Amino acid sequence: MSKIFTAKDVGGYKDEQSGMYIIIDSGVYDITNFLDEHPGGAKILKRMAGKNATKSFWKYHGKNVLEKYGGKLRVGDLAETAKL
């Protein structure tokens, strides 16, 4: 069973000491050890750490990128929140 995170939980993972997580769609990804591998550089990942990166991710990446790296980086799912 996948771990469930709230957006607030993910917000606590925004530096290399605690780990760096991002949200893409409904998935939560640990990018801490991916910083040096990211073709666009670590700077943008550090800027997005602890946040919902969905819009930025899909602006620059296709589905194949998430298929390639998502499996090894995904640590859980985003909790569903009530829509008003």
Rank of each mutant, 00 (worst) to 15 (best):
D9Q: 12
E80C: 11
K14N: 14
Y13F: 15
G76W: 06
K72R: 15
T81R: 15
A49C: 03
G12F: 12
T32F: 06
A7L: 15
L84V: 15
W58D: 02
K68S: 14
K51I: 07
H38A: 06
A82Y: 11
D36I: 07
K59L: 11
Y21G: 02
A49W: 07
A79C: 04
G70E: 08
S56H: 08
I22A: 01
A53I: 08
A49F: 04
F34Y: 13
K8D: 12
G27F: 07
K3F: 10
Y29R: 03
T54M: 13
L84T: 15
F34D: 05
G50I: 07
Y21I: 02
L73K: 06
A53V: 10
Y29Q: 04
A42Q: 14
G41C: 06
N64Y: 15
I22E: 02
A42M: 13
S18P: 10
D25W: 01
Y13R: 13
L78M: 05
V65E: 09
G11M: 07
N64R: 14
T81S: 15
G62W: 08
H38Q: 12
D9P: 03
T32M: 01
L45N: 05
E16Y: 11
L35R: 07
Q17A: 08
L84S: 15
K8E: 14
V75Y: 04
I31E: 01
K83S: 13
K43A: 13
V10P: 01
K14H: 15
L84G: 15
D77N: 08
E37W: 09
G12E: 14
G19H: 05
L35T: 04
I23A: 05
K83M: 13
K3I: 14
D25H: 01
Y69D: 09
K63A: 11
E67T: 08
I23W: 05
N64L: 10
A7G: 06
L78G: 00
K59H: 11
Y60A: 13
G12D: 06
T81N: 13
A79G: 08
D36C: 03
F5S: 06
H38K: 06
L78E: 02
D77E: 14
G11F: 09
D9H: 02
I23C: 09
Y29A: 05
E67C: 00
M20L: 09
